[in-house]
Amino acid sequence: MRSPSAVALDAHAAATLRYIRASMDAAGTVAVSGSAGVAMGVIGLLAATLASTGSLRPHWLAVWLFAAALACSVGGVLMARQASLQGFTLFGAPVRKFILCLAPGLFAGAAMTFVHWQENNLHAIPATWLLLYGCALISTSAPTTRMVGILGSLFALLGLITFCLPESLQTVALGAGFGGLHLVFGVMIRRKSRVS
């Protein structure tokens, strides 16, 4: 039978390990993957191209929704891969913070998409997506990097501009944002992580 002092020592050592882990988690940041940005950018550009072609043009919303689901999956897998390569736990506090910051903006985007679709107000969807995705990214700059905040600000700005654009240019704006901005920032983040 273990002595009470051995049990106390064991509990104290375990509590110390938990404290070290909590300190690391609190200070840790989510490793943003440049590859995820590049992959999401390529998917965005493909979606913009497909949604602009003659036969698929009436189904642009379905094309973009499919692209969004695909980009989220690919981006998520690449971010998880990056986190494991850098030795971060996948479900640690920084990742929880990242998800908590990102989710409200994405949820609002999904809700607004449903509302616009029900009201047959489809022309407002691209600007709403860009604006709310931008706001979500600005929030996630806290547990990630300042570069993500800059990317989010550009998305939000593009969203505001898109509200004023004619309907014919809105797919172009989606392509510029979800394709172009993701691609450019993905390349920049990859370069920066290679240098450091």
Binding site: S23, M24, A27, G28
Partner: peptide, 23 residues
């Protein structure tokens, strides 16, 4: 001190105010 060292082990650098907020 243990917390400071643990936090600095996962971050390249932390400012005084970041450490103050953390602990």
């Amino acid at each position: 001190r243990l917390g400071m060292m643990s936090a600095l082990a996962v971050r390249d650098e932390l400012t005084f105010s970041e450490l103050k907020t953390l602990f």
